[in-house]
Computed example of a mutant assay.
Amino acid sequence: MSNSRIFAHLQLTRPANVVTAIADIMAGFAIAGMGAYLTGFSNEGGYLADLCWLALSTIGLYAGGVAFNDVFDADLDSVERPERPIPSGRATVKSASIMAFLLLLMGVVAAAQVTVTSAIIALTVAVLAVLYDYWGKHQNFLGPINMGLCRTFNLLLGISVIPELVQEYAFIGLIPLVFVAAITMISRGEVHGKNRKALFGGLAMYILIVASIVTLAFMLGGKPLEVLPFLLLFVYMVFPPLIKAIKKQEPKLIGKAVKAAVISLIILNASLSAAFAGWMYALLVLILLPISLWLARKFAVT
């Protein structure tokens, strides 16, 4: 396979977005009370190995899921986005499908190295991702929820390092669900624009997310002051581009708002991590941000 074809298949996996999925795992790891194993550089109990397996799992799940998205959108992209790998002929539907399936399989197998619960959650993420690619994205109401559930279960995948805590903290998964549902809703104007209702809906959901994290920091994490810097960075990243998009409703500005929100998933996870594991662990999560931004300059985010 030539270098150009390898690069094209790599494009299908949205590398910058994959990094945001790793942040989900790290946040779940913190919620499960495992933050000390990174900030204290201790591998007692083998939890660092578990974190690596879960990170590998989410890489496979996310990359496979978004690759299948381009497989199912091949005909539409040939009209609206002919520069993408499949319609441009740099990748084929067959090669992309094989790669996507193997990545999803890798995700489930890697999760199975941690706990049975992890494997079940990984399989759920894989099914939800393919369901969204094939059906969910065409549904005005259920589609954004479907996409949000992928992130919810991805966060739970991180928590599954301690299986008995998954059910106890499952409600925290509502935060990424609402945020990703908002992004999905906003992104529907990325090609044609003029989606004012969706943009205002996204704004309201963003405000709800900020309020929820503040509440969580006070009620459960007990570290509200450590959360504040990360939450302010989150607000700075997502609100200005969305407000600009609301004012003009231009596809280009909507695309920028979506891109900023996707990358800000890392900051959202850093905020959650700070609430449960403190600022030092949250900084480790935030290190993923410049990596994702660098990749976003080389690969498409949406």
Results as ranks from 00 to 15, higher is better:
residue 3 N to S: 09
residue 4 S to C: 06
residue 6 I to P: 06
residue 10 L to G: 04
residue 11 Q to R: 11
residue 14 R to E: 05
residue 18 V to W: 05
residue 19 V to Y: 10
residue 20 T to E: 04
residue 21 A to H: 13
residue 21 A to V: 00
residue 22 I to Q: 14
residue 22 I to H: 13
residue 22 I to V: 14
residue 24 D to A: 11
residue 25 I to Q: 02
residue 28 G to E: 01
residue 28 G to R: 14
residue 32 A to D: 03
residue 35 G to L: 14
residue 39 T to E: 06
residue 41 F to H: 06
residue 42 S to T: 04
residue 44 E to F: 02
residue 49 A to V: 02
residue 50 D to I: 04
residue 51 L to A: 13
residue 55 A to S: 15
residue 57 S to L: 02
residue 63 A to Q: 11
residue 67 A to D: 06
residue 68 F to Q: 05
residue 68 F to P: 05
residue 69 N to I: 02
residue 75 D to Q: 14
residue 86 I to S: 04
residue 88 S to E: 03
residue 91 A to V: 08
residue 92 T to S: 15
residue 95 S to H: 07
residue 95 S to R: 09
residue 97 S to N: 13
residue 100 A to C: 13
residue 114 V to Q: 04
residue 115 T to V: 05
residue 115 T to R: 12
residue 115 T to D: 05
residue 116 V to G: 12
residue 119 A to R: 06
residue 121 I to Y: 03
residue 121 I to Q: 05
residue 123 L to M: 12
residue 125 V to S: 03
residue 132 Y to N: 01
residue 133 D to G: 09
residue 141 F to G: 00
residue 142 L to R: 05
residue 142 L to H: 10
residue 144 P to W: 07
residue 145 I to G: 03
residue 146 N to D: 08
residue 151 R to D: 04
residue 153 F to H: 07
residue 156 L to P: 06
residue 159 I to W: 04
residue 160 S to I: 08
residue 162 I to E: 09
residue 165 L to Y: 12
residue 167 Q to M: 07
residue 172 I to L: 15
residue 173 G to I: 01
residue 174 L to N: 03
residue 175 I to E: 10
residue 178 V to T: 10
residue 178 V to E: 07
residue 180 V to M: 05
residue 180 V to T: 10
residue 182 A to V: 10
residue 183 I to C: 03
residue 183 I to D: 14
residue 192 H to Y: 15
residue 193 G to E: 07
residue 194 K to E: 12
residue 197 K to F: 09
residue 204 A to S: 08
residue 209 I to A: 01
residue 216 L to Y: 10
residue 220 L to T: 04
residue 221 G to N: 09
residue 221 G to C: 07
residue 237 M to T: 15
residue 239 F to R: 07
residue 240 P to G: 06
residue 242 L to N: 08
residue 245 A to G: 02
residue 248 K to M: 10
residue 249 Q to E: 15
residue 253 L to S: 08
residue 257 A to K: 11
residue 259 K to S: 15
residue 259 K to H: 13
residue 261 A to S: 14
residue 267 I to K: 12
residue 269 N to W: 10
residue 270 A to V: 15
residue 274 A to E: 08
residue 275 A to T: 01
residue 278 G to K: 02
residue 278 G to Q: 03
residue 290 P to C: 11
residue 294 W to L: 15
residue 300 A to C: 11
residue 301 V to T: 05
